[in-house]
């Protein structure tokens, strides 16, 4: 068993599944000899050949559209969009076709495909490389949207995503690609999609987050503990379809909820979670729901990036405000 990073876990999961299922193929820009710009596909072309790890021309709509055609024939394409900021030419294909093919053919054609993309800020990247636009896809019926927060989950959720019979958008928080290592047994064991993970148990407040921001959220929970506040931490992991029951159960126990997201605040996933808690759990609440998020601004270029990102102290502050609410 080796200790590996999140990006290595993505690589391992893809390699595992390619080894046991010959229908699994990888395609994208620079995924071959280069192993991907973040090295997610490092070594895979050497291992599985250029017929199964395919360097595509530079065209994102094509990558998504071709994946749809391949998946319709029973293959299981795992396509890489190099950065989420470049996914937009492919959105037509993802929303208008991938998400609805099963429905509009009444089940005759279904699409077992994964579209991976690194996303989020914090690595001093060029413009258009740092946005968190997961809500765009989470809004679309027919898609599943998965965001791993650590190496173990990246491994297990990627396996589940590839094996899922429907299209999965797999968003990788690149800021935490290499921030920690987990001991992972490369045994092909998946984590189920559509399930939240309770990462820390607590009694005073539920902190709900996903992706890179889960790290700040967990640190905030530590700090709160030092101040005598017991925070429960939930990793949403599959942001669509949302496992709202786990969140509601937790809020029923703690009576307080704070959602932490890197994305802008308005019309986001945090809004949906807050609305669900308000609809189904408002009588359990001892205080108004709180949200810690990015600003409703364009994601700034990297000199101001730090000022945009929610930080541990913001979460601590908001959690304390909620807990102290009378």
């Amino acid at each position: 068993m080796a200790a590996i990073t999140l990006i290595e876990a993505v690589n391992k999961a893809m390699a595992y599944e390619m080894g046991v299922d010959e229908e699994v193929v990888i395609l994208g820009e620079d995924v071959g000899a280069n192993g991907g710009v973040f090295r997610a596909t490092d070594g895979l072309q050497q291992k599985f050949g250029d017929k199964r790890v395919i360097d595509t021309p530079l065209a994102e709509s094509m990558i998504a559209g071709v994946s749809i055609g391949m998946a319709a024939q029973g293959m299981k394409p795992v396509a890489e969009i190099q950065f989420m900021g470049f996914i937009f030419p492919a959105v037509d294909q993802i929303i208008c076709h991938a998400a609805r093919m099963r429905n509009r053919t009444r089940g005759r054609i279904h699409l077992p495909m994964v579209i991976r993309a690194p996303f989020g800020g914090g690595i001093h990247a060029p413009e258009h490389h740092s946005e968190s636009t997961e809500a765009i896809f989470a809004h679309i019926p027919g898609l599943k949207v998965v965001i791993p927060s650590n190496p173990s989950r990246a491994y297990g959720l990627m396996l589940a995503a590839i094996r899922d019979p429907d299209p999965v958008i797999f968003l990788e928080p690149k800021r935490v690609y290499r921030i920690e290592k987990h001991e992972i047994e490369d045994n092909g064991e998946e984590y189920p999609l559509g399930m939240c993970f309770v990462d820390r148990e607590g009694t005073d407040i539920t902190l709900i987050s996903w992706g890179a921001m889960l790290h700040e959220t967990k640190q905030a929970a530590e700090k709160l503990a030092a101040e005598g506040i017991s925070a429960e931490v939930i990793d949403v992991a599959t942001v669509s379809p949302l496992d709202i029951d786990t969140i509601l159960e937790s809020v029923e126990k703690t009576g307080r909820a704070c959602i932490v997201q890197e994305a802008p605040k308005a019309g986001a996933l945090g809004s949906e979670i807050a609305a669900e808690i308000a609809e189904k759990g408002v009588m359990n609440l001892l205080a108004p729901i709180g949200r810690v998020s990015g600003y409703d601004t364009v994601m700034p270029y990297y000199r101001l990036e730090k000022q945009y990102m929610p930080k541990v102290e913001h979460i601590v502050e908001e959690a304390k405000r909620i807990v102290e609410y009378r």
Partner: peptide, 23 residues
């Protein structure tokens, strides 16, 4: 059974054809 349904968004279907041919 394997034919695609009509694609209303213009030209998107050509990429599906390419993907099917790739398979």
């Amino acid at each position: 059974k394997q034919d695609f349904p009509i694609a209303v968004p213009i030209a998107t279907q050509l990429l599906h054809a390419a993907g099917i041919a790739k398979a």
